[in-house]
């Protein structure tokens, strides 16, 4: 049996139904444990004080904002190449989640930036890149909303997602070129000197796992809703055509 069998909408509905509650519970546990650990059981940073703890929201949401777009890119490609409807619908389902993650990353960054840099907003390359990513999410979702025919919408948004991904990367480099910025380096790279300390790192990993699980749960629920909506659409269309 091919892996693509799981992409059949009926099968997809079948195997995801028991998975969704499991994901909810696991993400709930990971987030509770990770956030409590991170917020209350880690020391304050010698330089940044208690404000450092916003990384437990900021870093995972920023990572998921990017991962969601990557997932949309992959599912869009699968739709364009293999025409699996679930894939296109999963891309559609992931977009609002990714957009919210982007907003959370931006807002938590602003809250962190205020005490650290003395300003809510700076035209720092990372912040600016996320703002641009947010605009890409908006455009992508507006495109889905504007088109009635679901297959046309899936095709056009997939093309937009491909081109948008290329331009998102180009913008990232362009923005770096444009302004060098205040933002600290990567918090989670594996071999970097500037990596955050272990005490902060472990709970961060737990929270990150929680965000991934939460993302999966949200996307699955939304995809299942999209599949049902799509089925309704097909039924309504058929009724109309007699």
């Amino acid at each position: 049996m091919s892996i693509w069998e799981y992409a059949n909408p009926l099968k997809f509905m079948g195997w995801t139904a028991p998975l969704v509650p499991v994901l909810w519970v696991l993400s709930g546990i990971a987030l509770t444990v990770g956030l409590i650990w991170g917020f209350f059981l880690t020391p304050d940073d010698y330089r940044m004080g208690a404000t450092v703890k916003i990384i437990y929201i900021h870093v995972p949401s920023a990572m998921m904002a990017i991962n969601a777009w990557v997932m949309m890119l992959v599912t869009s490609l699968i739709w364009l190449i293999r025409r699996h409807h679930v894939s296109a619908l999963a891309a559609k389902a992931a977009a609002p989640v990714g957009m919210i993650m982007t907003v959370v990353a931006l807002i938590s960054g602003a809250i962190w930036g205020q005490p650290m840099w003395g300003t809510w907003w700076a035209w720092d390359p990372r912040l600016t890149s996320f703002l641009i990513l947010f605009l890409f999410y908006l455009g992508y979702m507006a495109m889905w909303a504007a088109i009635d025919d679901p297959d046309t919408a899936a095709d056009l948004t997939s093309v937009l997602c491909l081109v948008g991904s290329v331009f998102a990367v180009l913008s990232r480099y362009a923005v770096n070129f444009w302004n060098q910025g205040l933002h600290q380096g990567a918090s989670l790279s594996l071999d970097s000197e500037e990596n955050v300390h272990d005490v902060f790192w472990l709970p961060l990993l737990v929270v990150l796992a929680g965000f991934v699980l939460l993302f999966l749960a949200l996307v699955l629920v939304r995809t299942r809703t999209e599949i049902r909506a799509r089925r309704l659409h097909a039924i309504a269309l058929r009724e109309r055509m007699g």
């Binding site: 025409r83 097909a234 058929r238 007699g242």
Partner: peptide, 14 residues
């Protein structure tokens, strides 16, 4: 005929 399976796509969303 509206009720028959119409190709691979539509069957999926019956």
């Amino acid at each position: 005929i509206a009720t028959t399976a119409q190709g691979v796509f539509d069957e999926a969303f019956r």
